[in-house]
């Protein structure tokens, strides 16, 4: 949104009598469009976001901080961090491997793989969660196996991690595939002719070429991993202090009419979103050329 606005301002003629290009609208039309966009943004994004912080601090700093001294809240924060710490690196590795394969090689089933990678974006997270319940519950396909071996998947950390990986795995691959396709294989081939092993070429040539795209996608992947509600809600079982992530904890507090605590915990997620947005904008502004043009989410 901000990019669009910036472009429009830059295209403003210096003087009213400067000849306009055919695609530029009249002054009144332009200002109306900009005003509509700003009002819309304020109403639907800025005001609600501000409300989160206002509500969280409505009973003062003391109450706000007290929310985080509560063991269940601490457990939720810890669980969220653990889940992200497993899911994000996993998707990083998967994303690099998948985009490497798709961008640099030809193989049968390639377009099917590309389509499958996008699947989590088109499936409702609740459905993703239900799939895992069906697969891993005691009556499910793999359920019996895990029950026999005493491994608890559903309503425990493994289930939550699996559901999180499922909903976040397109982020890295979707950013890197167009980026790697655009860069082609010439630099890697050059490295190989100079005697570099495949791994050395990857570390010294491929990885530096995709580093900003990678950081960008990891950032978005992390934000989603920490904020995911639907899929995690289905597989978690909502056991207080055990299987509640931050978003689930917010819901519980809210349902108990504990609004201040709910908003206080929610402010963590809102803060994460703002930091993510800030770093994302800096990356887009500073390294626009090294990010995939089509990879903006």
């Amino acid at each position: 949104m901000s990019e669009t606005a910036a472009t429009t301002f830059a295209a403003l003629p210096a003087k009213p009598d400067t000849p306009r290009s055919a695609v530029t609208e009249g002054r009144a039309v332009r200002w109306t469009l900009i005003a509509v966009a700003i009002v819309f943004l304020a109403l639907f994004l800025v005001v609600p976001l501000a409300t989160v912080f206002v509500q969280a601090l409505s009973k003062g700093w003391e109450t706000y901080l007290a929310t985080f001294r509560e063991p269940d809240a601490l457990a939720a924060v810890r669980l969220t961090l653990i889940v992200a710490a497993i899911a994000v690196p996993f998707n990083l590795v998967f994303g690099i491997a998948a985009s490497w394969a798709i961008a640099k090689f030809e193989f049968p089933g390639k377009s099917l793989l590309v389509t499958l990678i996008d699947l989590p974006f088109s499936v409702s997270p609740v459905v993703s969660g239900l799939i895992y319940v069906l697969v891993f519950s005691a009556q499910g396909v793999f359920g019996a196996f895990f029950v026999q071996h005493g491994i608890q998947v559903l309503f425990a950390l493994p289930g939550i991690v699996l559901a999180t990986i499922f909903v976040t795995f397109p982020f890295v691959a979707r950013e890197l595939i167009p980026l790697m396709q655009e860069q082609g294989t010439a630099e890697e081939e050059a490295a190989l002719t100079l005697g570099a092993s495949g791994l050395w070429a990857f570390l010294t040539v491929t990885l530096p070429n995709i580093r900003w795209g990678l950081l960008y996608s990891v950032l978005l992947c992390n934000a989603r991993a920490m904020g995911e509600f639907g899929a995690v809600s289905v597989v978690s079982g909502h056991i207080r202090g055990l299987t509640n992530t931050i978003p689930l904890h917010v819901e519980i507090l809210y349902n108990e009419y504990n609004f201040v605590a709910a908003f206080a915990v929610a402010s963590l997620l809102a803060g994460l979103a703002l930091v993510t947005l800030l770093i994302k904008s800096v990356l887009e502004w500073r390294y626009a050329g090294e990010l995939a043009a089509g990879g903006r989410h």
Partner: peptide
């Protein structure tokens, strides 16, 4: 030694590092 049509120089390396790449590898 292969010289590519569009050079395929390593964008993130200086000229000296580009030339030294094969030796460092």
């Amino acid at each position: 030694g292969f010289v590519f049509q569009h050079y395929a120089l390593f964008k993130h390396m200086s000229v000296a590092d580009n030339i030294a790449y094969g030796l460092n590898a």
